[in-house]
């Protein structure tokens, strides 16, 4: 079957060649930096700027081993995955609930609340991290307690243990503010989606005796799967690259995510470019894979969310 699109299918081969030419031209500018990064990760520090060519004369695999071992990439990689997954689950759950309510349900203060969320998205204040740090520190004082397990008699439990649920140098202290930061955009995006969704299916479910929450969970959320794909990839990119907040809040190296490990090679004085490039190549791979997986959702997602008028 012939498909129709905005551009008419022309027989004119010059137009087709022209389109291909411009697409390839733009593609080259996008591929070149990636190729350069990968090739640089195989060069030595001396070679890297002397020879900007794409084919390295040496193959310094040691840059990769150096990045993996010196940067302690193993634990950092686990941490990054852990934070990305938890923050995304948090954002998706909380924002989809709220967005569904903003779209379908009535409650007092609905509009004011929605615009409140929206407004936060627009405020770019670099100083906010200091305020957040002060807050998390306060929470740390409020939520920490000591457990004394010495009565059990085990030697490693002899000293009382201090536990802080959310505070400085805790994983939750990293995760919760990240969820909060990414919430606004997700709510805005998902509300647009729910608004466009035909309500018939949900009404049918209501008649079948499903509760409001049931309708959300069993009908609305599965239908929104594709819009959620968009949110997943948007947020994954931000969280995967977040390192300022990680640096501020953690002091334990075993809790740091990948970008912090990467920064080790970018010194205030000496930058070990090839190792840095090797590290960045490793870092970029999971996000590209995630994008490939989410692509089909994204394509359907925006579509269904925004266009079916």
């Amino acid at each position: 079957m012939e498909s129709y699109s905005i551009l008419k299918k022309r027989k004119n081969p010059f137009v087709t060649i022209g389109i291909h030419f411009s697409l390839i031209l733009v593609s080259i500018t996008c591929i070149f930096p990636v190729a350069w990064m990968i090739s640089s990760s195989l060069k030595t520090q001396e070679m890297i700027f002397e020879d900007m060519g794409l084919i390295p004369k040496t193959f310094e695999i040691s840059n990769y081993t150096k990045a993996l071992i010196e940067g302690k990439f193993g634990i950092a990689f686990f941490n990054s995955c852990f934070y990305t997954v938890t923050v995304i689950i948090g954002v998706v759950l909380v924002s989809s609930l709220a967005a569904y309510a903003f779209s379908r349900l009535e409650f007092p203060g609905k509009n004011i609340l929605f615009y409140g969320f929206l407004a936060y998205m627009m405020l770019p204040i670099p100083g906010i991290f200091l305020a957040l740090y002060v807050l998390v520190n306060k929470l740390g004082d409020l939520t920490s307690f000591t457990i004394d397990l010495s009565f059990i008699g085990l030697s490693f439990l002899k000293d009382p243990i201090n536990i802080t649920i959310i505070g400085i140098n805790t994983r939750l202290g990293f995760i919760m503010p990240q969820i909060a930061m990414n919430l606004s955009f997700a709510i805005y995006m998902l509300k647009t989606f729910f608004d466009k969704m035909p309500p018939e299916l949900e009404e049918a479910a209501r008649i079948d005796g499903c509760s409001k929450f049931g309708v959300y969970w069993h009908v609305a959320l599965p239908l929104a799967k594709s819009a959620l794909g968009v949110i997943v990839i948007f947020n994954a990119l931000t969280i995967w690259n977040e390192f300022l907040w990680a640096n501020l809040i953690f002091s334990d190296i075993s809790r740091m995510p990948l970008p912090v490990a990467l920064m080790k090679f970018q010194g205030s004085v000496v930058t070990q470019y090839p190792v840095l490039m090797a590290g960045m190549t490793i870092t970029i791979i999971p996000i590209v894979i995630l994008y490939l997986c989410m692509q089909k959702y994204i394509i359907k997602g925006i579509t269904a969310g925004a266009v079916k008028g």
Binding site: D159, N169, R171, L172, R255
Partner: peptide
């Protein structure tokens, strides 16, 4: 999960 792995022992 984060609680299990992430409880901080500030003054060990």
């Amino acid at each position: 999960v984060p609680l299990i792995i992430g409880c901080s022992k500030r003054t060990s």
